[in-house]
Computed example of a mutant assay.
Amino acid sequence: MTTARGRYAKGEQRRAQILATALEVFTEGGFHGSSTREIARRVGVTEPTLFHYFGSKQALLAAVLAARDERTPGPAGDLGRLLETVRDNATEPDLVRLFAVTSAEATDPGHAAHDWFTARYARLRSELAAGIAERAAAPERAGAELTPDRVARLLVAAADGLQIQWLLDRGPAGAAGIDMADDLRALARALLDR
């Protein structure tokens, strides 16, 4: 006889198996080039079973991205964790592409991953700001050399990222909590007026 706890553990194992398989399939073919039928086939379940765990393909993708985020220990907005994640991402270009495309698509409030991305960026900004404030209170440290090429790369990256965050942060009335131009101007001042 299977107990409720046994069914729960089996369900959690199945969920983890679906997430791992979906990550493989999505990174191989991208979100639009992948099918839930292929994910279900590789896991050894039917599509209805897959949708029992995740209500839609978009919801499955959001869960995959959230699980991927959880692989690196520590607070999500910790600077060390952010740097480690970026370094690890360099070894997984397909996953980075999947994340970038999905974050852009999730700017649509109807996208299943919209709320997750919106909350993720808000949490990252808040936690990074707290970490930066702590570092600012610590004794000065020698900074990295800011060559013109590096500053240009940082500004372009910030501009691209700000656009995605701005699209995610817009309310129903179109009011945005992020002023892209002002944020980029502040970064440029901080980098160039040292």
Rank of each mutant, 00 (worst) to 15 (best):
V25P: 14
Q17F: 05
D182K: 04
A173R: 07
E145T: 15
L128Y: 09
L61W: 09
P139K: 03
R71P: 01
A106P: 11
L192Q: 09
P139E: 10
E28C: 11
A40V: 01
I164S: 15
T27D: 13
S34W: 06
Q165R: 06
V45E: 07
A63M: 12
R153I: 07
R87L: 13
P109V: 13
G174V: 04
A4Q: 13
E24S: 11
S103W: 10
Q165S: 13
I18L: 14
L187E: 05
W166G: 13
S34H: 07
D115F: 10
R87Q: 05
L192R: 12
F31Q: 14
A186S: 09
I178S: 05
R14F: 13
D69Q: 04
R37M: 08
P48Y: 02
H52M: 04
L19Q: 05
A20W: 03
G74P: 09
A66L: 08
R170W: 02
A76D: 07
L50W: 04
I178A: 00
N89A: 06
F117R: 11
T46A: 13
A142C: 04
R170S: 02
R42M: 11
L60W: 06
R97K: 07
R185V: 12
A20Y: 09
G33W: 06
L128T: 06
A22S: 00
L192N: 10
E140K: 08
I178Q: 01
Q163H: 08
I18F: 00
A122S: 01
D69C: 09
V156T: 09
L154H: 02
R37T: 08
A159L: 03
W116I: 03
T36E: 11
T27L: 11
E47W: 00
L95S: 13
F54P: 07
L191Q: 14
T46C: 03
D193W: 02
A138R: 08
R97D: 12
A188R: 05
P172I: 03
A16F: 08
F26I: 14
G11D: 09
E145H: 03
I39D: 04
R185E: 14
A112R: 03
A113W: 11
A62T: 09
G174I: 15
L155V: 12
P73T: 14
A90W: 03
A4C: 01
G80F: 14
V64L: 02
D179G: 02
L191P: 06
S103Q: 13
A133G: 01
E24T: 05
L82A: 00
G29T: 11
A175H: 07
R42Y: 02
R189K: 08
A22V: 00
R153G: 15
L79G: 10
D115K: 14
E84L: 12
L95D: 09
R135Q: 07
L167V: 03
L192G: 11
R81Q: 10
L65D: 04
A67R: 02
Y53D: 15
R123W: 01
A76Q: 13
W116V: 03
Y121G: 00
K10V: 10
A106D: 08
A157F: 06
A181S: 07
A176F: 13
A176C: 02
A173D: 10
L61P: 04
A133Q: 04
R42G: 07
F51I: 00
L168Q: 02
